[in-house]
Amino acid sequence: MFAKSRIAMPSADAAPKGRATPILPASAEHYLFSRPLHGPYPEGLETAVFGLGCFWGAERLFWQLGDGIWITAPGYAGGFTPNPTYDEVCTGRTGHTEVVVVVFDPKVLPYERLLQTFWEAHDPTQGFRQGNDVGTQYRSAIYTTTPEQFATAMASKRVYEAAIAAKGYGGITTEIEEAGDVFLAEEYHQQYLAKVPNGYCGLRGTGIACPMPAAGSND
């Protein structure tokens, strides 16, 4: 039953009840940046949310962007269960996908650069999987926090879909929606590949560059 549920989106009725208490302690800080993971974040920063497979390697991609990144944090989004555990998410019954929360300064690091990193780091045509990682929790997703992010994400999808189609890839399956509840993952997942540098990272891009539209373009 669980094997089947991991490759098909569940219903809200079948999801675990979850819990009222966050899984990640309120005191948790970024392992590299020594900043509170839960915030509050300084004025002028934005939050972006990306799902592109196992969140260990995905998170590292974004903290390595350097200037303009305030914090990165693995989490769960797009599902039904409040404050799910990793084990619950892995059953496929919560409806969540593994994501990276990126808090950034758009004056220093434009959202377009985050999108380019996202598209080029994984294969967004695979549906409920990334390579050998199979399940709804590995689906490609962009969850936006402003109308401008949503418009830019949709424009970037059209541009990249054309670029990869020209190389023989199928349609993009990436879920692009306004962000709902996003729950930060357990402390042992946070900045995992900084703590365990030789740990697992299954990310594999298509090798095709993403020709991003100009900032502010919806075309």
Rank of each mutant, 00 (worst) to 15 (best):
A3V: 12
K4T: 09
A8V: 13
M9T: 07
P10E: 04
S11K: 14
A12Q: 15
A12H: 12
K17H: 10
G18L: 02
G18K: 07
R19L: 10
T21K: 14
P22M: 10
P22K: 08
I23C: 01
L24N: 10
S27A: 14
A28R: 11
E29S: 05
H30Y: 12
Y31P: 00
Y31V: 14
F33C: 00
S34F: 08
L37C: 09
G44S: 11
A48N: 00
F50I: 01
G53T: 11
F55W: 13
W56Y: 09
G57P: 14
G57D: 14
E59M: 09
R60T: 04
Q64T: 06
G66A: 10
D67V: 07
D67C: 05
I69W: 02
A73I: 03
P74A: 07
G75F: 05
G75H: 03
A77W: 06
G78S: 11
G79M: 02
G79Q: 01
P82W: 13
P82I: 14
T85L: 04
T85I: 06
Y86C: 02
Y86T: 02
E88V: 03
V89K: 03
V89I: 01
C90Y: 09
T94L: 06
T94G: 00
V100H: 04
V101R: 14
V102R: 02
V102Q: 01
V103S: 05
F104N: 00
D105L: 00
K107V: 01
V108A: 13
P110I: 03
E112P: 04
E112G: 14
L114I: 01
W119A: 05
W119F: 15
A121E: 01
D123T: 08
G127Y: 08
F128L: 15
R129K: 15
Q130A: 01
G135T: 10
Y138A: 07
I142N: 02
Y143E: 00
T145S: 06
T146R: 06
T146V: 07
E148I: 07
F150D: 03
A151V: 06
T152G: 00
T152D: 06
M154S: 07
V159E: 12
V159W: 08
Y160P: 05
Y160K: 04
Y160V: 09
A165S: 15
A166W: 13
K167R: 11
Y169I: 03
G170V: 13
G170E: 03
G170T: 09
G171N: 13
T173W: 13
T173S: 13
E177C: 01
A179G: 08
V182T: 15
V182I: 15
L184A: 06
A185H: 12
A185W: 00
E186I: 09
L193D: 08
L193P: 00
P197F: 10
P197D: 10
Y200K: 10
R204T: 15
R204P: 00
T206S: 13
I208C: 06
P211Q: 11
P213G: 02
P213H: 06
A215K: 12
A215H: 14
A215D: 13
G216N: 12
G216E: 14
S217I: 05
N218Y: 05
D219G: 04
D219V: 09
